[in-house]
């Protein structure tokens, strides 16, 4: 369980995250949606202790992320931010192998190799294992980063816009993968998404942020509605029921 209490963060005089309090239960996929500048990415980074908070606390399974040793948290919670620019020249396999760093401090065991192979296979990267990251396309690189996080094998996995750079086939595959991870392995997945319909079709729960505040929290059936979406994004929406999924149409 992730308990977020009264998290506030401001840069200069701009409040980016404003007194957010919410609880994320174990298991399932939670999507965070909202317009640009709503504070989604900042909140995610604060949860993963990448950015210090000004006020409030984040507890992961009872551990305060600001005070718990980094290596302890690294075995419970992982995060992938967006726009990962890496100057280090690593092969895909070496990058993914570093996902095991919290466990082996750089000395992979046979068990670690198994994790690495599995993660590569999940993301269809078996053939690219020996390639350097700077020789890959944006989408392949994004998949390699996700494979590294999978390899880290933590109970909580946080992704900031994981569908960036991915084409439709790979975007769908990525969301299915995250759903399987949640269903089959009991992982708790939190994703920041831009595409409302991906959030609608794959999430167990949706969190809506607006102006740095928590605006709404609930299952897709409660959130993906014309009135709430309109209030969130400030433009007209239609919502259709298609084969059990709620699909928002906003191409007015």
């Amino acid at each position: 369980m992730i308990e977020i209490r009264n998290i506030t963060k401001s840069y200069d005089s701009t409040v980016v995250v404003d007194a957010v309090t919410l609880t994320l239960r174990r298991g399932g996929i939670t999507s965070i949606i909202g317009p640009n500048g709503a504070g989604k990415s900042t909140l995610l980074s604060i949860i993963a202790r990448l950015i210090p908070t000004d006020k409030g606390t984040v507890m992961v399974d009872g551990l305060d992320v600001a005070r718990t040793a980094g290596e302890v948290l690294a075995r419970r919670l992982s995060i992938l931010r967006q726009d990962n620019h890496m100057t280090t020249r690593l092969t895909v396999r070496d990058l993914v192998a570093f996902g095991r760093y919290p466990y082996n401090k750089g000395r992979p065991t046979a068990q670690d190799q198994e994790h690495i192979n599995k993660a590569l296979a999940y993301l269809g990267l078996e053939d690219l294992g020996g390639r350097f990251l700077d020789e890959l396309s944006g989408g392949q690189r994004q998949r390699a980063f996700v494979a590294m996080v999978l390899c880290q094998d933590t109970d909580y996995m946080l992704f900031d816009e994981p569908l960036n750079n991915l084409d439709i086939r790979h975007a769908v595959a990525m969301m299915k993968l995250l759903r399987d991870a949640a269903r089959d392995f009991g992982k708790t997945v939190v994703v920041v998404l831009h595409d409302v319909n991906f959030a609608s079709c794959y999430s167990d729960q949706i969190i809506v942020m607006r102006d740095g505040k928590l605006f709404l929290q609930g299952p897709p059936s409660e959130i993906i509605r014309p009135d709430t979406l309109q209030q969130t994004y400030g433009c007209p929406f239609e919502v259709h029921d298609l084969g059990g999924d709620r699909i928002a149409v906003y191409y007015a």
């Binding site: 993963a48 990448l50 302890v72 690294a74 931010r81 280090t88």
Partner: peptide, 10 residues
């Protein structure tokens, strides 16, 4: 790999 990756890996 950068401060974010490093922190994530503990």
């Amino acid at each position: 790999m950068g401060q974010d990756f490093a922190t994530n890996l503990g």
